[in-house]
């Protein structure tokens, strides 16, 4: 009993220490994390942060440059850009995280299953993953949106599908290297269920590459939404979304009202930048080979 209570503060301290060590060793990664946290706070508490409604048109204040009233200016419809960017963070993070987690989870399941069962299951799954890998992503996304129409959940579906095979591939190769390890064999011969072996022994061992990939996926999903928006098939009004804002702004106002084109672009670039930096640092920190330097 006492051992447990004693244990807690120590652990907390070591967690704190680990964080500090991370920050010291990975200044860029920490910077990335800070960006991610800012975006997350913006997304979570948009209602409190945003000074204006993200959707209310204000025809008295159309395409106004940045000012005290509108820090980042207003867009074509007189909507406050800062408010739209703050709310847009929520859309971006929903798209980023849902796509990454769903795509990652499916990839994890398929990858581990492929590696664990091997044989014909592996063969079939590998061929399916090959097909999905080889299929041009943007075309798949275009088709999915054309079938179901735009809308956040459809856009997420369109972005998620291509992520699955890429995750499955990486997970499978990590899992394969573990499969032959004696303790898995031992677990098998001692009659543990497949699920138990997979969950208890294989999954924890592929968590590191999986996590690193997740952070990359979040960024990629946010970018993919922007690409779809450029083709007119991303998230649509009235949902505030960065890709949507950037498309309209860059296409028509890059020269006459550059703030409409610049700020949403910066929001996307910075957030994806943050996730990438953080992901890189995470990889360096987790990868044992990197740690020993």
């Amino acid at each position: 009993m006492t051992a447990v209570t004693d244990d807690l503060p120590v652990r907390r301290r070591s967690w704190l220490a680990a964080s500090l060590r991370f920050a010291r060793r990975q200044p860029l990664g920490t910077f990335g994390l800070v960006i991610v946290v800012i975006a997350a706070i913006a997304g979570l508490s948009a209602e409190w942060i945003a000074p204006y409604s993200p959707t209310a048109n204000d025809f008295a204040a159309m395409t106004e440059p940045p000012s005290a009233a509108h820090w980042l200016g207003t867009d074509q419809f007189g909507r406050d850009l800062l408010s739209r960017i703050v709310y847009g963070a929520r859309t971006a993070l929903i798209i980023g995280f849902v796509s990454a987690f769903v795509g990652g989870f499916l990839g994890l399941v398929l990858g581990v299953a492929s590696a664990y069962f091997g044989g014909w299951i592996d063969d079939v799954l590998q061929r399916v993953m090959d097909i999905l890998m080889a299929f041009p992503l943007i075309i798949m996304a275009l088709a999915v949106v054309a079938i179901f129409g735009t809308g956040v959940q459809n856009v997420i579906a369109a972005i998620t599908v291509p992520l699955v095979p890429r995750c499955a591939r990486v997970v499978r190769s990590s899992a394969l290297s573990i499969r032959e390890v004696p303790y898995i064999d031992a677990a098998r011969t001692s009659g543990f269920s497949h699920a138990r072996i997979i969950l208890r022994h294989m999954v924890p061992n592929v968590v590191a590459p999986f996590l690193i990939m997740l952070t990359a996926f979040v960024g990629q999903a946010i970018l993919a939404e922007a690409s779809l928006s450029y083709l007119g098939l991303g998230v649509q009004e009235p949902t505030p979304a960065w890709g949507l804002m950037l498309q309209g702004g860059a296409e028509e106002y890059a020269s006459t009202a550059p703030w409409i084109a610049i700020f949403p672009g910066l929001a996307i670039a910075l957030t994806v930048f943050g996730f990438s930096l953080f992901g890189d640092a995470l990889r360096d920190a987790i990868d044992p080979k990197m740690r020993e330097r």
Binding site: S227, Y230, L246, A250, G265, I268, A269, T271, V272, F273
Partner: peptide, 14 residues
């Protein structure tokens, strides 16, 4: 990383 993070159509238009 900035190169990876920037939407390519934005870069192109700019």
């Amino acid at each position: 990383i900035a190169g990876i993070a920037t939407p390519s159509f934005w870069l192109g238009i700019l």
